[in-house]
Structure formats: C-alpha cells, structure tokens
Design a protein around this nucleic acid. Structure first.
Lengths: 135, 135
DNA sequence: CTTTGTACTTGCAAAATGCAATAACAAATA
DNA sequence: TATTTGTTATTGCATTTTGCAAGTACAAAG
C-alpha cells in the first residue's frame, strides 16, 4: 500500500479506489456477475490490459478482491468480492444514482429510477444476491 | 467536457470526479464549510496549485460548483455547491463510512460510528445545513 | 504437436501529476 | 504615491500514470 495522504477516511478511500478504473471493475463483479480477466476486458469502456492487471493486483492487495483458480479451467483465475468489497455496494449504488440523474442517454435509466424510488430496497436486493458469493 | 467512455452512469460519474482530488474539494466545501482557493490549499492532503485550479475549473464547468466574487473582498472568489454538487452528499457520506470502517487512526471515527448508527439522519442533517448555502 | 484461451509483460508515446517559482491584481498600509 | 500583503492563477520541468500495440508464458483441447 502506498502512503496515505492523510487519515481522513474519504482521503484514505480515494487513495485506494480514487481513479477512473477501479470502481468499474467492482461494478462488473458486483452488478454484472463478471469474474474473470477476459470478462473485464470486454466491458464497453475498454480498459487496457496493463491497467487491468495493475488494478486487480492492487484490489487484491487491499483485500477488496480475492483471487482463486477456476475449478472448471485451471489456467483461469476467478476474482470475487471479499466482505470489504461487498461493503462498497452503497457507494457504487449512490454513484449510479447520481450518474443516472445527471446524464441523458443512460441505458440503465430504469434501474436509476428504481434506485431513486427505493434505494434501500435495491441495496438489500443486491446484498442478498452477493451474500452467497462472498469469499 | 471530455468524451465519455460509455453511457454507464457509474462510468459517466467517474469521468467527472473519478480522481484523487475532486471529492476532497467537495468534502472541504460540504463538510468543512470551506469556500475559497486558499482554504482548499490549507487542507492536510496538500493539493498542488495547478491541480486545484484545474479541478475547480472542471467542477465549475460540470456545474457542480459555482464561482462568485466575495462581497467582503473583491479579489477573492467564493466557491459554492450547486444542487448537482449537493446531490453528491450521499456518495461522500458512503465513502466516509467505508473509509472509517476499514481504517485505523481515523480522527473522525466518532462521525463514522454516528453514520453507521443512523446514516439517513446524518445525511438529512448535512442536507439541511447545506440547503441554505446552495447557489 | 499445433491451435486456442487466459493471464500477464514490455516498450513507447501521451497525458496527468508533483513541485517550485513567479505573475497579476486588488486591498491595506506607510 | 509607493510598498506590502493576500488571493488567485500560470509556467516550466521532472516524475508518474495511462493508452495502445505487440509479444510472452503456459495449460487445455483437438
């Protein structure tokens, strides 16, 4: 872990995932059920391979993701959220809510509206889904 | 505004404030009542002047901050949150909550515990405080 | 024993950041 | 008027991070 800029909890958090890519990987695992390197590469934002490797490494070091060998394919790794990673869900949901509110052309506007109507329920639903997958 | 990587609301949001500094400026205004360039410079994370100028400019362009001349000092500018900026409060609170939960030595642990006990109330309190200041 | 899929590495150019010095300009002071 | 102070912003340059293209390593499948 690189040195912290301060002990402020917001600053500490941004030291870990304050970049343009980390939370997109989290999103892929959390909301889209992705689990592997190649699935992350497919996402529409087109992350570069060196950045992806680096972010997966940092997120694993920070104990936000766990990495294990796929039972189905021994040359494949599976990335899962730890509890610390699952706890990022409210942040991701709030960011999605804000983004949906202030962006036209958002393909997930329905989910955005659902969130605005009952955020706590949406979070609870995803948490339930994730509960069985946590490492 | 730079080009968006995708129409995903999370990606769009990160295009705007997905860096290590923007949300710290928002924090200073939102939670610490700071309003001016020199106050932002004083924060413990020690943002560089060129980064600060650039982030204030971007946040103003994105209509998250408004910039006006100080009535008390005509050579001073005052930065305030717009409604779009105030709407970032839940994100900031969730990030603070997560950061406080997973970091020792956090000087605002009391606030962290208060958030965990009654997040909605904390958000409502800050919203009330900010309501009168919005531009 | 060649092909495919998966994860990762390398090299290089471009962009962002960190740091130090300095400028522009209004207000306050001498 | 001249000088100093406070505030905001700019510039130059070194360092770091990112984007992009190509290539490597290695296990599984055919």
């Amino acid at each position: 872990m690189k040195k912290k800029r301060s002990d402020c909890p917001i600053s500490c958090s941004l030291d870990v995932f304050g970049d343009k890519w980390s939370l997109l990987i989290i999103r892929d695992i959390m909301l889209r059920g992705k689990m592997s390197y190649s699935e992350f590469l497919e996402s529409e934002e087109k992350i570069a391979t060196n950045i992806l490797v680096n972010r997966l490494k940092v997120l694993e070091e920070e104990n936000i993701l766990s990495k294990s060998v796929s039972p189905a394919n021994k040359s494949k790794f599976i990335y899962r959220l730890t509890q610390k990673g699952v706890d990022l869900l409210p942040i991701v949901i709030e960011i999605m809510d804000w983004g949906a509110r202030y962006n036209e052309n958002c393909p997930r506007r329905e989910l955005g509206k659902k969130i605005q109507k009952d955020k706590i329920k949406v979070i609870a639903e995803y948490l339930e889904k994730l509960r069985n997958e946590v490492d």
